[in-house]
Design a protein around this nucleic acid. Structure first.
Lengths: 98, 98
DNA sequence: CGGTATCCAAGATGATACTG
DNA sequence: CAGTATCATCTTGGATACCG
């Protein structure tokens, strides 16, 4: 449990994961989908996820650079947990949340 | 999802919840089961859970006081999420964690 | 036994500005 | 477009000590 929590740690981690679960996303996609997330924190999270082997980065050679992030198999392990987080969140709101 | 995360926020919240899911526990039970958790944080967490309506407190009248905490129906909503946290944690460790 | 009161250190986050 | 650099701030957690 502590291991799973450690992976989700950080206020924005799960939200970035949710975006990536729907498929590869560019830095700009993520930044646009999460407007309240600062560039600094976004790149912090992405770097951590890549270091942990949960995400991969595909970088183009041209200019402007276009980088695409996608989940690895290890990252996809988290999918059921994210689904349960969503379900539980709905449940909490239904019964007068949070 | 954010609602669910907010409820689990705090490094020790899920561990306290796990103890309570097995049944009512006194303050001392919890403190003993989680030796690395300071009194301050334990009482912070319990207070928050009671405020949120996820736990209830039953206090005796005598002395020394003996207080028992237990989960409410709202608290039990979190059970499937905790189970999934546990499952995911196991999965992470199996594939070379954390 | 079952807490509360302080204070401090560390880490996370946010705002802003700048670069290849 | 895709970041990095810097700094202020906010939040958590831990240590310690004390109270009814």
């Amino acid at each position: 449990m502590e291991a799973a929590l450690a992976v989700l740690s950080g206020r924005w981690t799960t939200l970035v994961l949710r975006e990536l679960i729907h498929g590869p996303r560019s830095y700009g996609d993520l930044s646009g989908a999460l407007p309240r997330l600062s560039d600094k924190v976004l790149s912090d999270r992405l770097r951590t996820m890549v270091e942990q082997g949960r995400a991969e980065r595909g970088e183009t050679t041209g200019f402007p650079t276009r980088t695409t992030y996608s989940l690895t198999d290890r990252g996809l392990l988290l999918r059921p947990l994210l689904v349960e987080l969503y379900r539980t969140g709905q449940g909490l709101l239904d019964t007068r949340g949070p």
